[in-house]
């Protein structure tokens, strides 16, 4: 199905040395729309040294169109932005080269988005390790209902849609790209999804959460953040600091900052608990403290008060640096 001469859906797949998995990602795109010709797939090669690009070009997507382009910049943000500049679809989605979609997913997302006239649609994610699967549910129980963007941010005391940032678990209307909202910050080494999700929800777009065939996320790969255990762990701090600056003049600044601090504390606990490297740990503590120091002290204190004793103990080195009692 196409909108005039335009494909219905564009899927952007950034790939860096993904030869082992990209065939799965492309095979999963074969049965997504009633009219396979309505699917446009753009594989963006992020300076791979293996045969990722060639394998993708050879594999193709049955019935759909596939292009392989080279990313001028480096990193997943630059690659996705390069894909966005080439995407012509009415709806736009993303897929990492080591993940895959179940058949029929994109049609369900398209229908859900169009039914309520939303700007973007999000879903649950299935985490996969070999044959073990677990469901990471989108933290919104209202399914199929058009919701204002800001409804996905608050309350600060619960996990909300901004805490479920996986870009590949969604589909976005082209107008977000035309309005300049759908673009990744290329200065972020990681957590680019999180920063973009905050911006979309802050811009008070309309979204819907839908039940759909799975978006499968492969865990435990050597290239993953948790496996690599390096400075990329700090990406979420840069991302949230960027969000902090963005809400500085917002009328609802205090509540938004409360949510941001809660998210930052939760992620800091997670990364401090996971990292095995002293340098990374030191950098996490230092930079988390720096970001928190830019937030009004009462907001930080109130957020810390919500954290349980066990997690406060993990955060103690950070909290001491900002002058808040653990």
């Amino acid at each position: 199905m196409t909108s005039g001469d335009r494909p219905e859906v564009s899927i952007i797949i950034p790939v860096h040395n993904g030869a082992d998995f990209i065939g799965d990602a492309l095979a999963g795109l074969a049965e997504q729309l009633p009219d396979p010709g309505g699917l446009e797939v753009i594989v963006v090669d992020d300076h791979s040294t293996d045969a990722s690009a060639e394998i993708a070009a050879t594999a193709g997507v049955p019935g759909g169109s596939l292009r392989v382009i080279a990313s001028a910049g480096y990193g997943v943000c630059a690659a996705r932005n390069a894909g966005l500049s080439q995407a012509t679809g009415r709806l736009i989605g993303f897929l990492d080269a080591d993940d895959w979609f179940a058949p029929g997913r994109l049609e369900v997302l398209r229908a859900a988005l169009d039914r309520v006239g939303a700007d973007f649609v999000r879903t649950d994610v299935v985490l996969v390790a070999e044959r073990q699967r677990s469901l990471l549910a989108a933290p919104e129980s209202r399914r199929g209902v058009r919701l204002p963007g800001r409804a996905g941010i608050l309350p600060s005391t619960s996990r909300t849609m901004v805490d479920h940032p996986a870009m590949f678990a969604g589909l976005f209307h082209r107008r977000l790209l035309d309005e300049g909202l759908l673009r990744f910050d290329e200065d972020l080494p990681s957590a680019e999804d999180r920063e973009l999700m905050w911006r979309l929800h802050l811009a008070d777009t309309a979204y819907v959460v839908a039940d759909a065939p799975g978006a499968f996320y492969r865990r435990g790969l050597p290239r993953s953040l948790t496996q690599a255990d390096d400075q990329r762990r700090l990406g979420y701090l840069t991302a949230l600091d960027s969000v902090r600056r963005g809400v500085a003049s917002d009328p609802d600044q205090e509540r938004l900052l409360a949510k941001l601090v809660q998210s930052l504390l939760a992620l800091t606990v997670q990364h401090l608990s996971q990292t095995r490297r002293r340098q990374v740990r030191h950098a996490l503590i230092t930079q988390a403290a720096r970001v928190l120091a830019a937030v009004p002290r009462p907001v930080v204190s109130a957020a810390v008060y919500q954290v349980d004793a066990q997690r406060r103990a993990v955060l103690a080195p950070v909290l001491r640096r900002v002058g808040v009692r653990p």
Binding site: A19, I22, G23, D24, L26, A27, G28, E54, I55, A59
Partner: peptide, 14 residues
């Protein structure tokens, strides 16, 4: 067989 393995095999046997 996962499609990714088939795709790699096709590439290696080009």
């Amino acid at each position: 067989m996962p499609p990714a393995l088939v795709a790699q095999a096709r590439w290696r046997c080009r």
